[in-house]
Simulated assay, not measured.
Amino acid sequence: METFESLVRAEFAPEHTYLNTASNGLLPARTVSAVQEAVRLRAEGRPIGSLYEDVEGVRAAFGRLAGVPAERVAMGASVAEYGGLIAAALPAGAEVLTAEADFSSLVNPFHMRGDLKVRAVPLERLAESVRPETALVAVSVVQSADGRIADLPGVREAARAHGARTYLDASQSAGWLPLEADSYDFLAAVGFKWLMGPHGNAFFVAPEDFGGLTPLLAGWVAGELPWESCYGPVQELAHSVRRFDVSPSLLTYAGLRASLALIEELGIDAVHAHDLALADRFRAGLTRLGHEPVPSPGSAIVSVPRLGRRQSELSEAGIEVSDRAGNLRAAFHLYNTATDVDRLLDVLSS
């Protein structure tokens, strides 16, 4: 029987100490092979029906990870496009509550409307800041800049108490943190970070009644019968949330299907435990070195104030991390090891 370790080592052999999944995930070997085969299909003029099957395979796999039926999952190219759909559905003057300095792809569509009241508060005060006039609470599950995790149960209950909807960006959590998308109104996430897919995909989860959204980006793939919806106005939109699909990047989905299969084989709970153990090892090492990271208990992302300036130096030493908002940001995922953590600590101590 294959173990977590043997499965991972069969898929990854990075040449550098890669601790930058919060920017881009590494591609498993099976994903690289799947993309290469998809490219060959396109290059050789063979039938590509299997690539459209990959799209539906990815939809089903993400639904399982998110805890919702596949019929509630739409797929496009970016989080911002789905934020734009939600923003377009709000009435003029509606209040949108966000966390200060949250990721721009989440918050910017609401600012671009021009006639919404967008209010930003500290992340730790988000739940208590929901009020009767709040129409929507939009927040990243995990903050990109520093790894802090939102109080999602608190936000959910406060929103329900005031009749507000909830919209989560799970781009920095999907793939290591178990999701409960069914507990919220809307959820979006990209596939190229912790889900380890190629660029070009974003997921969107919406209610069965579509939450009042209009499929403004709908093309042929949004039809109930896509191949019969290629010409003229789409006569019948998909009866499911697939009506919010955008024409798929087929090579991306060929690879992403393989990546999601690996996560399911490993088990999200095992990935979660592995990633947190490494992050906690790094936090403990930082304490020994006299550094105090941004408090982010339970997060696979650890950010250290004022050390972002050392990112270039670390990269030259073969250690890939990020400089975000002046913080040195390290992100620990399933392909990382205790040796990776200790090497980063050794270089920081020098």
Results as ranks from 00 to 15, higher is better:
Gly93Phe: 11
Val107Pro: 01
Val121Asn: 08
Leu123Gln: 11
Ala92Trp: 02
Phe103Leu: 07
Ser104Gln: 12
Leu85Ile: 09
Pro91Cys: 01
Leu126Phe: 11
Val107Arg: 07
Phe110Arg: 00
Arg125Gln: 14
Leu97Lys: 00
Thr98Phe: 02
Leu106Thr: 07
Glu95Met: 05
Thr98Asp: 00
Ala94Trp: 02
Pro91Asp: 13
Asn108Pro: 00
Glu95Pro: 08
Leu85Cys: 14
Glu100Arg: 13
Asp102His: 05
Ala87Tyr: 00
Ile86Gly: 08
Ala88Asp: 15
Leu123Asn: 01
Ser105Cys: 04
Phe103His: 12
Ala89Trp: 12
Phe103Ala: 08
Met112Phe: 15
Phe110Cys: 07
Ala88Met: 05
Ala88Tyr: 07
Ser104Thr: 11
Glu95Lys: 09
Lys117Ser: 14
Val121Phe: 13
Val118Trp: 01
Ala99Phe: 09
Ala127Gly: 07
Ala88Asn: 12
Pro91Lys: 07
Ala92Cys: 11
Ser104Leu: 14
Glu128Met: 07
Ser105Ala: 14
Val96Trp: 00
Thr98Leu: 14
Gly114Met: 02
Asn108Leu: 12
Glu124Gly: 05
Val118Met: 03
Glu128His: 03
Arg125Trp: 13
Met112Ala: 15
Ala89Pro: 11
Ala92Asn: 09
Leu116Met: 09
Ala92Phe: 02
Asp102Asn: 14
Leu106Ser: 03
His111Ile: 04
Leu106Ala: 10
